[in-house]
Design a protein around this nucleic acid. Structure first.
Lengths: 152, 152
DNA sequence: CCCTTTTTGTTGGCATGCAAACGGATTTTG
DNA sequence: CAAAATCCGTTTGCATGCCAACAAAAAGGG
């Protein structure tokens, strides 16, 4: 080697294969953004966990659903949605019944208490979304949401 | 508008408080984007979990660190980084020692195996970041990363 | 109609992720 | 310097989150 490391940083375009910096990786930034959002949620809403709220909100939006369908619409796999539904049922926010036509299915629906609770939280939930996006101005927020959707 | 709530549903711009649709919430989109990224990671790298890789990458980047400092730099709380370090130590990727000047601290550092492993994964890790951003064109990627940072 | 495939839900196992409560060490402050 | 405030690391407890393996039921195909 005549001069493998004569100018370690001189020519960034050829020699060094771009150092791996954690803080530059999309995955790390996405994780931190999500972390921040969960912290904002936690400060605003203590009645339900984020996923429990998402579950009730989706049931409120779409009506009764099979457990697996509910999982798909909330982006939780079958094993995860099961735990969430179990806990919501235990706390009386949802109820389950057997599907008459498909004996594999368990239909999940809101109880009156669950409906009342989720409706009482919508305003604060909107605030959470607003606060999460607050570092960006209106134009940036629209752009960010657009890019986020495009990436999914 | 002179009559804010005269017609509850008639005028969408005034009356209805904007329905809460899960798929429109930043938090949900961030979670799904992160989920997608983790799936891409999982397909590309099986040797280490995402957080184990992040931990080794940060140690590679910053050198030996106290356990808590390592947690801060990787955005994991004290309880979480402990588990990650424990598992990495068990698998021989990192080692720990007592800090001579501060008896509270545990210094975490890469073992030769850990260093070799993480270095062998950098290329694939870069691919993961690239693939995660691939739905966006170059301009959009830059914009997205910019907005993501601004939001954190 | 039978066989194969798919779908639904469950379970076990492992890895985050965070709050709260602690004990011990160090730093800050009055 | 001594008390108070912090910081370090640990433990417990609970809630995701996902994989792999299963059993039962339904759907599809030949």
């Amino acid at each position: 080697m005549d001069k493998p490391e004569a100018e370690p940083e001189a020519d960034a375009s050829a020699a060094s294969p771009a150092p791996y910096r954690l803080d530059d990786q999309v995955g790390h930034l996405l994780r931190r953004a999500n972390q921040r959002h969960l912290a904002i949620y936690g400060r605003a809403i203590q009645e339900l966990t984020p996923m429990q709220f998402a579950t009730l909100a989706k049931l409120h939006e779409a009506g009764a659903l099979s457990q697996n369908a509910l999982g798909r619409l909330t982006a939780m796999d079958a094993a995860t949605i099961k735990g969430v539904v179990d806990r919501l049922r235990k706390s009386g926010q949802v109820q389950t019944e057997n599907d008459k036509t498909d004996r594999r299915r368990t239909i999940v629906s809101l109880t009156p208490e669950g409906r009342a609770l989720v409706e009482s939280l919508f305003a604060r939930a909107h605030d959470v979304s607003r606060e999460t996006l607050s570092p960006l101005d209106a134009t940036e927020q629209a752009m960010f949401l657009h890019l986020l959707r495009k990436m999914i």
